[in-house]
Computed example of a mutant assay.
Amino acid sequence: MNETLWILMLIANFSLITLAYRMWGKTGLYVWVAISTIIANVQVLKTVSIFGMVATLGNIVYATSFLATDILSENHGKKEARRAVYIGFFSLICTTLIMQIALAFIPDASDYAQNNLAVIFGILPRIAAASLSAYWCSQLHDVWAYEFWRKRFPAKKHIWLRNNASTMISQFIDTTVFTAIAFAGVFTADVWWQIFWSTYILKWIVAACDTPFVYLARHLKDRGNVPV
């Protein structure tokens, strides 16, 4: 069941990011980066067993933020991709700050959500610190690496190379930094290593699967089918 839901989640994310780009162009990708950053940091609190591994959720939606910046790099340049990184960074800071203030409110006797919100967002500062550190290092590397490979392999047929060469290294950086800050000491060593490798492997699979969508986005841009 989890494997089926994982594939469904993959399809849903790729479909929605493509729809956002088709409808609103690079603005749609900026919105998606903000959405994916926030959702990923909530989903990551849930661990599941999938494909024989212990993994956290959030891997798919977070990995699509790399897809968004790669599409921006490919179709609109490094400057616009960097802008998306800054938007994602700002979105997570805002979410963390606002939710900590929200939790500080004394709930009314009729309230039923405070304890549940505290479970999810009470841990968010540590998750956010891990995510911000990992996000900053990995996403800026991804933007730099995509441009690096595009200068050496500029042909449209080599999109697969620059997409995967940039993203897969960037996601290794992201996984290393995030799991070290977020989960060191939270889980036993064997579970931590399972989460580390499962997180990276699943992100690697998403990165491999997203390549056709970079080609599709380039095709839409070349045909003039996305807003300027």
Score class of each variant (00 low, 15 high):
residue 45 L to Y: 09
residue 166 S to C: 03
residue 149 W to L: 08
residue 161 L to G: 04
residue 183 F to Y: 10
residue 159 I to E: 04
residue 18 T to S: 14
residue 116 N to C: 07
residue 68 A to G: 02
residue 172 F to R: 00
residue 152 R to T: 05
residue 225 N to M: 14
residue 170 S to K: 08
residue 85 V to I: 12
residue 170 S to P: 01
residue 27 T to P: 00
residue 99 M to I: 10
residue 191 V to M: 09
residue 83 R to M: 12
residue 97 L to V: 15
residue 167 T to P: 01
residue 61 V to E: 10
residue 213 F to N: 01
residue 70 D to F: 01
residue 214 V to F: 03
residue 62 Y to G: 10
residue 228 V to E: 15
residue 122 G to D: 08
residue 117 L to Y: 11
residue 176 T to Q: 05
residue 164 N to W: 06
residue 136 W to G: 08
residue 152 R to K: 14
residue 215 Y to N: 03
residue 43 Q to K: 11
residue 115 N to Y: 00
residue 73 S to R: 01
residue 144 W to P: 08
residue 88 G to M: 09
residue 169 I to V: 15
residue 97 L to I: 15
residue 185 G to M: 06
residue 65 S to K: 04
residue 186 V to Y: 14
residue 148 F to M: 03
residue 57 L to Y: 02
residue 221 K to V: 05
residue 76 H to S: 12
residue 58 G to I: 10
residue 117 L to K: 01
residue 218 R to N: 13
residue 78 K to W: 01
residue 21 Y to N: 03
residue 27 T to W: 13
residue 60 I to E: 00
residue 19 L to C: 09
residue 91 S to Q: 08
residue 50 I to C: 10
residue 3 E to I: 07
residue 108 D to R: 13
residue 106 I to D: 14
residue 47 T to F: 11
residue 43 Q to V: 10
residue 178 F to P: 09
residue 218 R to T: 09
residue 106 I to M: 07
residue 210 D to L: 08
residue 53 M to Q: 12
residue 137 C to P: 06
residue 153 F to N: 07
residue 107 P to Q: 02
residue 70 D to C: 06
residue 96 T to L: 04
residue 175 T to D: 07
residue 121 F to C: 05
residue 60 I to C: 03
residue 101 I to K: 11
residue 143 V to T: 04
residue 129 A to S: 10
residue 216 L to D: 00
residue 170 S to N: 00
residue 164 N to F: 10
residue 143 V to D: 06
residue 13 N to S: 14
residue 136 W to T: 13
residue 91 S to N: 05
residue 49 S to E: 15
residue 63 A to K: 10
residue 159 I to A: 01
residue 177 V to K: 01
residue 110 S to M: 06
residue 157 K to R: 13
residue 190 D to F: 03
residue 39 I to Y: 11
residue 228 V to T: 15
residue 132 L to W: 08
residue 4 T to K: 00
residue 38 I to H: 02
residue 101 I to V: 15
residue 56 T to Q: 11
residue 37 T to D: 06
residue 154 P to F: 02
residue 36 S to C: 10
residue 62 Y to W: 01
residue 116 N to E: 15
residue 152 R to W: 05
residue 64 T to N: 04
residue 220 L to Y: 09
residue 30 Y to D: 04
residue 32 W to G: 08
residue 67 L to F: 10
residue 108 D to K: 14
residue 23 M to N: 11
residue 70 D to T: 03
residue 205 I to D: 04
residue 17 I to C: 07
residue 67 L to R: 01
residue 179 T to C: 14
residue 15 S to W: 14
residue 104 A to V: 05
residue 37 T to N: 13
residue 222 D to T: 09
residue 166 S to V: 03
residue 213 F to A: 02
residue 51 F to N: 11
residue 208 A to R: 00
residue 11 I to D: 08
residue 99 M to K: 09
residue 52 G to P: 05
residue 180 A to Y: 12
residue 101 I to Y: 15
residue 142 D to R: 01
residue 204 W to C: 11
residue 205 I to Y: 09
residue 209 C to K: 02
residue 106 I to Y: 00
residue 83 R to N: 13
residue 137 C to N: 06
residue 36 S to P: 08
residue 52 G to L: 06
residue 198 S to L: 06
residue 137 C to M: 14
residue 5 L to R: 10
residue 75 N to L: 02
residue 224 G to Y: 08
residue 177 V to N: 04
residue 61 V to A: 06
residue 47 T to Q: 14
residue 42 V to W: 00
